[in-house]
Write a protein that binds this DNA or RNA. Structure first.
Lengths: 291, 291
DNA sequence: CCAATTGCCTGACTAAAGTCAGACATCATG
DNA sequence: CATGATGTCTGACTTTAGTCAGGCAATTGG
């Protein structure tokens, strides 16, 4: 590694600290101390369990309790005992709290949008941010099953199609391809899996079923920023597990020579090449796996 | 811009905040409140002037004064009146302060190194971090004249050569090229300019003189993360200004078709193509500018 | 040389953040 | 059903951070 690698990381830290600090102080603009604001936001983002909150924010139990009570007195939060274990408490936003939370979200969104706006090449900035987020948050990546028509899935699919269009010599048009029916990638027939980090998608794979024991893998894609971490393998694993649950015993897929990394993945994870099994104009290689 | 651009920025913010927070709390591990630690580090990084310090850290003058005195009592810092204006004061580290500062630096460096180490593709992570740092710190980029044999310059040149090797079909070997003598790129004969952000280089350009009114532009390079912001143009402008100061009235340069963005820059900033004027094996296009 | 300004310092605050010991209710278990 | 463990809350702190009004010395500009 070149001498200055560490210096480059530290330059990054410096640049980012001042930006993050700016966000913090802008939170103060709403007349609430940072601590309370952080608690309110964490609750708004779905962290209800008081213990989990304390853990996430790294606060002492006494301080946590006091902050919560402060928010309660403002009428922004209410806490109820957890059903099943009344020692634990769950905090949730009241209507007023929801409104206040939205105000903070608006501030954050506006700052993010402003940053993108003042950059002449926002797309490359976003890609770089994704890359950094993955490096820092790798441990938090999870595989989730979601509807292929949901927003996160749609983002993945759009980016997947765009990438195919870039990489195939003849371009790519979804309409000409054998686009699987969404219903075939939802239980009970199939499944659609997403790799998620902090609420946003990083990759996807579709398991298309037809009710029988045959299934097909479709739409395997990983965001460029998240490549090289074995995510594709994880997604495929999850898809195979789903197939097993659904009762599918034979999986097929098609691919193209313009995607050598995909081919390598299949070849090293138990797939065998078979003759063409469809008339889709794009693929030129076909694989099968039984289990 | 796709629907989720803002969401991606916010995911980045979240990932980075926890990392930065971790650094902050690790600073606390040395038993000093964050405020004092920040002052100590700012001084260590060469920010001596008390007013500048206050400005940089965004602190009230009273608080600043108190923090400084605290550090003085610990024997880490001493302040002396500025020669010329005894109202202003300059803070500098004592030997003990230097040692303490180094300890903080070591913590930061170790965290940075650990981050790189646990990433399977550190080079791409660094590139992404550079890209983000540029986006956030664009306003802080400056053009500085430095020795072409200094560390920052050497980093640039190495990356420049590596890029030529990647982009030229026949590769690139400095030894075979007309490598300018460093002394020709230092005053009084020439100059070497760097685009700097937060102490690290983002690009460079060499102005090679021979004592006469002819000069040559060499080694124009901008880090990939900083392209598209007009840095090359700024560097060229600075080189021309330096040429004017030195008494150079005619500038030449050579380039290669494998670098179309360079060619475009020359064509749109007053350069005219001329016949080959040297026998370097790599260039295939030659330009001149008079002023 | 006098008045206004500048740069830093001090004292006297307030607010926020963080700590710690114990109280209290609830839960799990033998 | 007694016992210990768990999760949250309360009260009584200390430490940091931040604010504001003046004070003092040095400097600047008539």
């Amino acid at each position: 590694m070149s001498f200055d690698a560490v210096a480059r990381v530290r330059r990054f830290n410096r640049a980012v600290t001042s930006e993050v600090g700016a966000l913090d102080t802008s939170f103060l603009g709403r007349g609430r101390p940072l601590g309370s604001a952080r608690v309110l936001n964490a609750i708004g983002h779905g962290r209800g369990d008081v213990g989990e909150l304390r853990d996430y924010l790294g606060l002492d139990s006494g301080l946590m309790s006091r902050l919560l009570r402060g928010l309660e007195e403002e009428g922004l939060v209410e806490t109820v005992p957890q059903t099943g274990d009344a020692r634990r408490r769950i905090a949730r936003l009241t209507a007023a709290g929801e409104a206040e939370f939205e105000a903070y979200e608006t501030i954050s969104d506006a700052q993010a949008a402003a940053l993108l706006q003042r950059d002449p090449h926002a797309e490359s900035l976003l890609a770089a941010m994704d890359r950094v987020a993955v490096a820092l948050g790798r441990a938090r990546i999870t595989i989730e099953e979601q509807d292929p028509r949901g927003p996160a899935a749609r983002v993945c699919l759009e980016r997947y199609y765009a990438e195919l269009a870039r990489r195939f010599e003849q371009g790519f048009d979804v309409a000409r391809s054998r686009d699987p029916d969404a219903a075939d990638m939802v239980r009970p027939r199939g499944a659609f899996l997403l790799a998620m980090l902090d609420g946003g998608p990083l990759g996807c794979v579709g398991l298309k079923g037809q009710g029988g024991e045959m299934g097909e893998i479709k739409r395997l894609w990983v965001a460029e920023a998240a490549r090289g971490f074995g995510l594709a393998r994880l997604l495929m694993q999850a898809a195979e597990n789903a197939a097993r649950e659904i009762g599918i015993g034979v999986l097929r897929l098609d691919t193209n020579r313009a995607l050598p990394e995909a081919r390598r993945l299949y070849e090293t994870s138990g797939w065998t090449e078979i003759p063409r099994f469809n008339d889709d104009p794009y693929p030129d290689a076909f694989f099968e796996k039984r289990f």
